[in-house]
Simulated scan of single mutants.
Amino acid sequence: MAASYSLDDLRYFCTIVKLGSFKKASINLGMSLSTLSRRIRLLEQALQLTLLNRDAHRVTLTHTGELYYDRYRKLFDEVECIEQALCDEKDQPKGKIRISAPIYMGKHFLSAIFCEFLLQYPDIQLDLRFSNNLIDIEKEGIDIAFRV
């Protein structure tokens, strides 16, 4: 049976619990208080469960709400870690670049450029292959090939 709620609704629920109020969660999520309240009400209706006890001054978890929060909090914490790791990866170039060039060109023209490049991007490895022989760049897995 398909769920009639989204993971966003569960994330909203976790944000409310984490921050302790609908108002703080609505600000954090960038949505109106009424929209957030409606989404949580629809989530509870879809689950046919009460997750939160609400009164004028505070929000508390029901027993079922505690079970849901404990399970989904871990999921959303992991998603947040993955997103942060991907952002870090995106912002910092890493990896290996395989480069092929003729010996003379590599020695006299490219070596200074490669040194400067490595200083600017320390997490990148250059696999330099200087040779005057013709190579199959696809077979060798070459990313950049210089030929004169």
Rank of each mutant, 00 (worst) to 15 (best):
M1W: 06
A2C: 10
A2G: 11
A2R: 15
A3K: 14
A3R: 15
S4P: 06
S4G: 10
S6G: 07
L7G: 06
R11L: 07
Y12I: 01
Y12W: 08
C14D: 00
C14R: 02
T15Y: 03
V17F: 01
G20L: 05
G20A: 04
S21E: 05
S21W: 08
S21Q: 06
S21I: 01
S26Q: 06
I27M: 09
I27F: 11
L29E: 03
M31A: 04
M31N: 08
S34K: 13
T35W: 13
L36W: 10
S37Y: 12
R38F: 09
R41Q: 14
L42D: 15
L42F: 07
L42V: 04
Q45A: 10
Q48L: 08
L49T: 04
T50Y: 05
T50C: 03
L51R: 03
L51M: 01
N53S: 12
R54N: 00
A56V: 09
H57S: 15
H57A: 12
T62F: 04
T62R: 05
H63L: 09
G65E: 02
Y68I: 05
Y69M: 04
R71T: 06
R71Q: 12
Y72L: 02
R73M: 01
L75I: 14
F76G: 07
F76W: 02
F76H: 07
D77N: 13
D77T: 09
V79S: 10
V79W: 03
I82F: 00
I82N: 08
E83D: 15
Q84S: 12
L86M: 12
C87A: 14
C87G: 11
E89S: 14
D91H: 12
D91N: 14
Q92G: 06
Q92L: 11
K94S: 07
K94P: 03
K94V: 03
G95W: 01
K96M: 07
K96Y: 04
I97Q: 07
R98K: 14
S100R: 12
P102N: 06
M105V: 13
H108V: 11
H108C: 09
F109D: 05
L110S: 06
S111D: 11
S111M: 11
A112H: 13
I113Y: 13
C115S: 15
F117K: 08
Q120I: 00
Q120R: 15
Y121K: 10
Y121W: 09
P122L: 00
L126Y: 04
D127K: 10
R129F: 09
F130C: 11
F130E: 14
S131N: 08
S131P: 09
N132L: 00
N133W: 02
L134R: 14
I135W: 07
I135R: 12
D136C: 06
D136R: 10
D136Y: 05
I137N: 14
I137G: 13
E138C: 10
E140A: 11
G141T: 02
D143T: 01
I144P: 13
I144L: 09
A145M: 14
F146N: 12
R147A: 10
V148G: 14
